[in-house]
Design a protein around this nucleic acid. Structure first.
Lengths: 182, 182
DNA sequence: TATGTTACTGAACATAATGTTCGTCATTAT
DNA sequence: ATAATGACGAACATTATGTTCAGTAACATA
């Protein structure tokens, strides 16, 4: 990729992050992003068609790091034997989110949060569905899947909103405690 | 309240609902609401300062029916004795949502859904917190509260998205099954 | 170093939404 | 009947959107 492209792309991301620290996504205009990034108007539109696409790209960017190929691969078994590795995977997710350089707190704020969560839950659904057959609750599979994905996403949101006051290990332990998986 | 006020207010709500059936909240403009409701521009702004406030009012309206005083009162005990009435309350909530005349499906769609869920979770938090001391899981209280509220909200969203294909009773039964409350 | 390609600039433009103001007219409550 | 109140609609300044285009700078390659 051309260095110039990379440069403006970074500038846009940076500006977007900066703006998200003080404003809600819905109230941020393309104009403000342009001004903050200090780029030409047409330049922005050369990169992204809409503000939503910018957010989507940013989310995809984050998730490409969070959900590595290894994480999405077949279920792994750790040394303990009777645990199916889901706990390890979930912990990894929190660690990656914690280390993400992007402004996750801002993205999670009110209206953009909905889109972030939507994409997030997409990945989670794919991941969780591999472990579904092992649960032995008396409820439809699609209900259980939605419940696991939804409550995990909510847990992560809560964890981030509360400035990650518990360690990833603790948090996942609590999650497993209340969902009774593994 | 002046009948004229009530009339335009209804017209605005109706127009908003109609628009939500075909468009996402974020893409609906005040202009469209005005046109659809067939009212004067200044009239709209005499009622609501912003589009968000209109949505907020609509949500409050719905919730005032869903979360009745009786529902928010101290925990009640049904005839079975060992159940604390939470199941009954949750079932009531689904019934009220089902019977709501407002366009809940539209409100839940992508970007306005975030606000709806936020208000919804506010009420749920108040309600659930009364039952918290009865849970006996090894996790912090604020974590458990967030988990119950978040997963119930997600369950409701899923239920509505799936055209309420299960009865309120079934749905709540599943919810209790996976959360192990009551 | 020369050359063709690619990307950013900046200004201009048409379109559309926002939020406010104000005089006029219709409906309301008493 | 009348005074108060609310809706009307037009006009207005402001701002954002998304596109276009000619000019210029940075790039890769040979």
């Amino acid at each position: 990729m051309d260095r110039r492209q990379q440069k403006t792309r970074d500038a846009i991301f940076k500006a977007f992050s900066t703006l998200l620290e003080t404003k809600r996504y819905g109230n941020i205009t393309v104009q403000e992003i342009i001004d903050e990034a200090n780029i030409g108007r047409s330049t922005f539109y050369a990169h992204f068609d809409t503000k939503d696409e910018l957010l989507r790209t940013m989310c995809t960017d984050i998730f490409s790091h969070v959900f590595s190929d290894e994480l999405m691969s077949e279920k792994t078994h750790d040394f303990s034997g009777n645990n199916n590795g889901l706990e390890t995977k979930l912990t990894h997710i929190l660690y990656h989110l914690k280390d993400s350089e992007k402004n996750i707190v801002g993205i999670l704020s009110c209206d953009s949060g909905e889109l972030f969560m939507k994409y997030f839950k997409g990945y989670l659904t794919e991941m969780f569905s591999k472990y579904l057959n092992e649960t032995k609750v008396n409820a439809p599979a699609d209900f259980v899947l939605n419940h696991l994905v939804g409550s995990f996403a909510e847990t992560v949101r809560w964890w981030i909103d509360n400035r990650m006051k518990y360690t990833p290990e603790e948090t996942i332990r609590y999650y497993i405690e209340v969902t009774h998986i593994a």
